[in-house]
Each structure stands twice: as C-alpha cells, then as structure tokens.
Simulated assay, not measured.
Amino acid sequence: MSTTQSERLRGLLEPLVAKTGLDLEEIKVTAAGNRRQLQVIVDSDEGAPLDTLADLSREISQALDDADAMGGTPYLLEVSSPGVDRPLTEPRHFRRNEGRLVKLTRAGGDELVARIMAVDEDGLDLEVPGVKGRKPKPARIAFGEIAKARVEIEFSRKDPADADTDGDESTEEA
C-alpha cells in the first residue's frame, strides 16, 4: 500500500476508531485475487468487544464507500483486534500485556524471556523465571534497549487467583 493511500485511510478511519474508545493500531491493504483486503487492527487497554468491532466495521464500510477511498476495485474489509503473535512496539502494547511472559530481543541481539510486572514511561520491570528450581529474579529494561518483543504463549500457567486453592474442584449436587 502506498504511503499516500495509507495516510488517506488513516486520516479517514482514525476519528471513527477514536470515538469508540479504541486505538487504531494498523491498516493493511493486500491484493487477494481480483479484489483487495483491507485489514483494520484496533485495540484498547480493556480489549476490543465484539459488538464494538461489529458496529465499527459497519461505520468504516460506510465511510469508505462514501469517500470512495478504495476506488472502484472490490474489497474485503476485516476489522479485528491484534493477535497474540503481534509484535509489541509501543509502550501501550507492553502495558496491555502486564503479567504475561514475553520474549525480548535487546538492541545488541541477546534475548531474554521474562514476565512483565510493571510498565512506566521509561521501560519495563520484569521477573526473569528461575531455572532448575531457583527463584525468579527482578530485571529492568528501558524501551530504547528493546529491538523486538512478542508475547510468549503459556499453555500451563496457573491462574494467580487459583494459587491459594489445592487444585481440587468440588461440585455440589442439589
């Protein structure tokens, strides 16, 4: 997508997204056969509710048609929230993933897997998991030191709310 088209679409869509309380994260136009696909990625600190996404999709579609922003070529519109594999690039992305395990690549190339404990305007407070039975240790990294970052998928992480239970589920029959 050309920069001019990207800027035009952002200028058209950003006010629509902002009035829903969401952030416009990305706009991507790709060719799909004889039509194009327009992906509009939105998010907020509270997530993006499905009803809000559906309403926003209708508003965006109408605005695109009214402005003829996509030209005469047919297009498929997709309005969604970012997937878990999305790179973390802005401080708000890290804030939205507080408590999650992330894989960070520092500007020098070394990698670190750690849990985000807190986020401020300068960087992250992390907890680096201990290895071979050792306790986790705290770490700090400034945003300027981060070259790449992604959330690590955890399949067996215990919910902190369940930490004080013995793990047995009990059911009561009436």
Rank of each mutant, 00 (worst) to 15 (best):
D85E: 15
V102I: 15
S57C: 01
V40P: 00
L38A: 11
I60N: 01
L124S: 05
V79P: 01
L50E: 03
R92M: 09
D122P: 01
R96F: 01
P82Q: 04
A31K: 11
R100C: 09
A31W: 04
R58F: 08
S44T: 13
L101H: 07
L112T: 03
S57L: 00
R100A: 13
L101C: 05
P87S: 12
D125R: 15
E98T: 08
D51G: 15
Q39S: 12
L88D: 00
V131F: 12
A118F: 11
D125S: 15
D45G: 13
A63M: 09
R35T: 06
P49G: 08
V42M: 02
N34I: 04
L126A: 07
D120A: 12
Q39E: 12
R35Y: 07
L126V: 06
R100Y: 12
G71S: 13
P74C: 04
V79A: 10
L124F: 06
Q37I: 06
G108L: 06
V131H: 14
R96K: 06
E121G: 10
A54D: 08
E59Y: 08
S61K: 01
L50I: 13
E121D: 15
Y75P: 03
R100M: 12
L64C: 09
P87N: 11
S57N: 02
S81V: 04
V79Y: 03
T30D: 13
R36W: 00
A114Y: 02
G83C: 14
V84E: 11
V131N: 14
P91K: 01
A67G: 08
G123F: 02
R115I: 09
D55V: 04
E121I: 07
L53T: 02
E98G: 00
R36F: 01
D65I: 02
S44D: 14
G83S: 14
A63E: 11
R35P: 01
R36G: 00
S81Y: 04
D51I: 12
S61N: 05
G47N: 06
K103N: 15
D55M: 05
Q39D: 13
M70K: 15
L50C: 02
L104V: 10
L124T: 05
I60A: 14
G99N: 05
P49D: 10
V79G: 07
F94P: 00
V119C: 05
L104Y: 07
T30Y: 02
G71Q: 12
R58L: 10
L53N: 03
N97P: 08
D125V: 13
G109E: 09
G33V: 00
A67Q: 13
G72I: 08
E59C: 10
M70P: 11
P74T: 04
G33L: 00
E78A: 08
L126G: 03
A32T: 06
P82V: 04
V84H: 12
A31P: 06
R35A: 09
Y75C: 06
A118M: 14
G108P: 01
D66W: 05
P129D: 08
S80F: 07
G71D: 12
H93G: 05
T73P: 00
V40Q: 01
E46K: 11
R95T: 10
D66F: 08
Y75E: 06
P82A: 05
D110T: 11
P49E: 13
G108Q: 11
T105E: 10
P49I: 09
I60Y: 00
D55W: 04
L56Q: 05
D68H: 15
D43M: 03
T73R: 10
S44M: 14
A107F: 09
R58N: 05
Q37R: 12
E98F: 00
R96T: 02
L38K: 06
R95A: 15
